[in-house]
Design a protein around this nucleic acid. Structure first.
Length: 833
RNA sequence: GCCCGGGUGGUGGAAUUUGGUCAGACACGGUCGCCUUAAGAGCGACUGCCCUUUGUGGCGUGAGGGUUCGAGUCCCUCCCCGGGUACCA
């Protein structure tokens, strides 16, 4: 033996080589015939969110893939055929911005980064089926992104319109609503402007109800579902038409509180509302309205959105009729009303809406209470009465007075309906998905504009529309592709006349909205996938990724799958049956890792020094994986120490290899003494680890259980060798999903076999219970004695044992016993009067 | 404001599934010892707080109340921290 030190890198590269050479983690798409013959072992599709290849992988990647890999290994060894593929989300702004700075083509920097990720994944020993690898910037992939775009276009789910859109002046491109955080670009942090532009959209709003309702069918963390519900923002209410007699026009508003209609004492338009100028024309306020609107439009969304700022607005100098009271109520324009939500106009009920109340105060407008608090309490002055319970009743509301707010909602909507003045309605916060980007490094939109035929889709047979080479990536308010004249000028696919290509590219979230489907059938060049093959694998059984994608990616992917399912191309309604969102690894200072803070931990040197098994185990041991955790190198050393101890146990057994060959690592038939203790501990560990892997993914306690097993093996050096070998082999087998190299190594030392080919160990339930236990004897809830009792002993016997025990007896004598609580196999509590 | 999480030793965290003793598993850090020429590694013991009563002692899971024979765990009120979201009518 060269030395007796644990040398992880040697062990790790040896096993990695075997897995690469033998393609251990590859799975095939079986024909139906083969499937029938195999008797259909259950499939399991385990997937981590694909990485965005930029620079080198960081420690967060290691966490994601260590988590997914542990689950994949566990599923394999519990009898599943596991699909565990890998790919790269290769288009996107960072590579392009890098190109602008350095002149290096985005393809080159992206491919270099992909190579770095590939090296990392191999050196981390992640069990990937490399035959299914893909990257979204390859024409063989984005050909089908374009194909899907055309299918959406055919169904009216992709469309072009001019709209007020979010524009990032720094990145010189438009952004989806989901990509604007607090009025700023999620990528570069610059304040977003609003521009009127003609852009491509996906009609995700058509799916709002299904995206909402079908959240109930999937096993996702509740907070992620809540975020999606919030984002979709479904509100039930009514549309109510208000008539302006003076100008003979009608304006509809959306309200969630039709029951307060009698309290509507004025009416407000958003500054962007197209009729504002027309309404003000010829009134004394005309000029003031123009000034106000112009100022409002130049304010950034952030300035305007400040909730605490005092209400401002201007009267339009005209009135409109409240449809239930017939009153003429004044109209205003005010920037607290948003054009993007509802109809861009609201009925104002100052008594029952805080914003309307504040506005009414500024303009001294009437405030008419129409709902009475249930308990007749006074409404605090300066506040609108907005709280509502089932018991509140209407006042000052004509024939509806006395109804509860719930009844009134229905009754007033019915009345409006009969009068043709309104109807029940549902409103959403969700907007259609804006997918155009005025940038180079993305998937070209397969559209040609022809003077004669108009907008013409590129035929399927001409796909892919390949991204051309350009000299200058600098965005100048139009896509850099516009400069590629040879590419832009083309023939119209319909009339063969001159045409010009669409020069915007697609949002990269389009690329990643369907990659999990392509993994199922990655080499198909006739279709994006064969629906029959897809049905073998979809849905993804376990999806793993960061919570930062809770809305964007996860909502878009769900929309894609539903749309594709409606076309008959996909067999499921939801892409990801179960979702696990992992927490971040923070720097040693407890702060988010960042170059500027100088607290970045790179996986490379860590793996070099301690081995990847130690790094992976440490990341999982640090705490529950869905929580954030600060990096602590000393703790990593502790895990390395544990792995060394396990490794040395394997080494010790190697010396007695002849014995190992005879009885392998079977548990001894009838152990006793220390041997029994060890065998029992091993089964306890199997039970604990299996439970942790199946439910909440609390790998930290699973690893702690294996640590306890290893500690016990050290504690009983004299135990019968066969029991020791069983315990060591069990520890190796259990640690394999977390430390696959060491697990393989130690297991092979003991048994000569490959641990990943072995089924997951079975628990012997008899070994989980001891024959006797310590019966806790309490008096009035205080511990007074312990005695040994037989497991499974009847209540009467336990009660007798407790009452006879010295500590109890001394306190019970001379008192009356009120009752005796017996918890089988645990305790007896004697309650005195 | 609203919606989710969460608050346990010097530190990360266990125990929350089903209310069941002794809270604090497993680690980190610390103290002491063994081994070693030394260092490292390794091995072992101790490590919530308090006490002029060292005891089958007292106190202890953000604060206060409650239910119970029994509460970190359930209920109520409140405080604090993290995340999401917001003039959404």
């Amino acid at each position: 033996m060269a030395n007796d030190r644990y040398e992880p890198r040697e062990i790790e590269s040896r096993w990695q080589e075997i897995w690469a050479r033998e393609g251990t983690w590859e799975v095939s798409n079986d024909s139906e015939e083969v499937q029938a013959r195999l008797g259909e072992p259950e499939k399991s599709y385990v997937l981590e969110m694909l990485p965005y290849p930029s620079g080198e992988p960081h420690i967060g990647h290691l966490k994601t893939y260590a988590l997914g890999d542990a689950i994949a290994h566990f599923h394999r060894r519990t009898g599943h055929r596991v699909l565990h593929p890998m790919g790269y989300d290769a288009f996107g702004l960072p590579a392009e911005n890098h190109a602008i700075r350095t002149g290096v083509h985005p393809r080159q920097s992206t491919d270099e980064s992909i190579a770095a990720f590939q090296r990392a994944f191999r050196s981390w020993g992640i069990s990937i089926d490399w035959t299914r690898e893909l990257a979204t910037h390859e024409p063989s992939y984005y050909r089908w992104t374009q194909w899907i775009f055309l299918r959406l276009l055919e169904r009216g789910l992709a469309y072009r319109k001019e709209a007020a859109v979010n524009w990032c002046p720094h990145d010189a491109t438009v952004l989806a609503n989901e990509q604007v955080i607090d009025g700023r670009c999620e990528r570069c942090g610059h304040e977003v402007e609003i521009r009127q532009l003609e852009q491509w959209f996906f009609r995700i709003t058509d799916y709002a109800d299904r995206l909402l309702d079908e959240l109930d069918t999937i096993n996702w963390p509740e907070h992620v579902k809540a975020m999606q519900r919030n984002w979709i923002g479904r509100s039930e209410g009514a549309e109510v038409a208000f008539r302006c007699e003076e100008l003979d026009t009608e304006y509809t508003v959306f309200t969630t509180r039709p029951d307060t209609l009698f309290g509507a004492t004025f009416f407000v338009f958003a500054p962007e509302h197209p009729d504002v100028f027309r309404l003000a024309a010829g009134t004394e306020h005309e000029e003031e309205v123009h000034r106000y609107v112009n100022r409002a439009l130049t304010e950034s969304p952030e300035e305007r959105g400040a909730a605490e700022k005092p209400k401002t607005g201007v009267p339009l100098g005209r009135t409109i009729t409240n449809p239930v009271t017939g009153e003429q109520i004044p109209m205003f324009v005010a920037d607290y009303v948003l054009m993007e939500y509802g109809t861009g106009a609201v009925m104002a009920v100052p008594a029952h809406d805080q914003r309307d109340y504040d506005f009414a105060q500024v303009f001294d407008l009437p405030i008419r209470q129409v709902v009475a608090p249930a308990d007749d309490s006074e409404v605090p002055s300066g506040e609108a009465f907005v709280a509502h319970s089932e018991n509140e009743r209407l006042i000052n509301s004509g024939e509806f007075t006395g109804l509860s707010t719930v009844e009134a909602r229905r009754a007033i909507v019915e009345w409006l309906d009969r009068q043709g003045k309104g109807n029940a309605s549902v409103n959403y916060r969700l907007r259609d998905w804006l997918i155009s980007r005025q940038r180079y490094w993305g998937c070209p939109i397969p559209i040609v504009y022809c003077e004669r035929c108009g907008m013409v889709p590129v035929p399927d047979s001409d796909l892919p529309v390949v991204l051309p080479e350009v000299e200058d990536y600098q965005p100048r308010g139009r896509s850099p592709l516009a400069a590629a004249e040879d590419w832009v000028n083309t023939r119209c696919p319909r009339c063969r006349g001159p045409g010009r290509r669409e020069t915007d590219t697609m949002d990269t979230f389009v690329d990643s909205s369907w990659y999990f489907l392509r993994y199922c059938d990655p080499h198909n060049d006739q279709a994006p996938w064969d629906p029959k093959v897809l049905a073998q694998w979809m849905p993804v059984d376990q999806y793993i990724g960061g919570v930062e994608h809770a809305i964007l990616h996860l909502l878009y992917a769900r929309f894609f799958v539903k749309a594709l399912a409606d076309m008959g191309l996909v067999n499921v309604q939801e892409p990801f049956s179960s979702l696990f969102t992992q927490g971040m690894i923070l720097g040693p200072d407890g702060q988010k890792m960042s170059k500027s803070r100088g607290n970045v931990i790179s996986p490379g040197p860590i793996v070099e020094r301690y081995g990847v098994d130690a790094a992976r185990c440490y990341i999982l041991f640090i705490g529950p994986p869905d929580q954030d955790a600060a990096w602590a190198e000393t703790s990593l050393k502790g895990v390395h120490h544990f792995l060394s101890r396990l490794w040395r146990l394997g080494l010790g057994e190697d010396a007695s290899a002849s014995a190992a060959a005879q009885d392998g690592a079977e548990a001894p038939a009838d152990p006793s003494g220390d041997a029994l203790t060890l065998v029992r501990k091993a089964h306890w560990a199997i039970d604990k680890v299996t439970g942790d892997m199946s439910g909440r993914f609390t790998f930290n306690t699973a690893i702690a259980a294996i640590m306890e097993l290893v500690n016990d093996i050290y504690r009983f050096p004299e135990a019968e060798p066969q029991a020791r070998r069983f315990a060591i082999a069990t520890a190796a087998s259990l640690v394999f999903p977390f430390a696959p190299h060491l697990g393989s190594e130690v297991y092979q030392q003991l048994t000569g076999r490959r641990v990943w080919e072995e089924p997951w160990p079975d628990v012997d339930p008899d070994m989980l219970r001891a024959d006797t236990f310590e019966l806790v004897c309490m008096v009035n809830g205080k511990l007074r004695d312990r005695v040994t009792a037989n497991t499974g002993a009847p209540r009467e016997e336990l009660e007798r044992l407790a009452l006879e025990s010295g500590g109890v007896k001394a306190r019970v004598d001379g008192h009356d016993v009120a009752k005796v609580i017996v918890v089988p196999d645990k305790l007896v509590n004697v309650v005195l009067v």
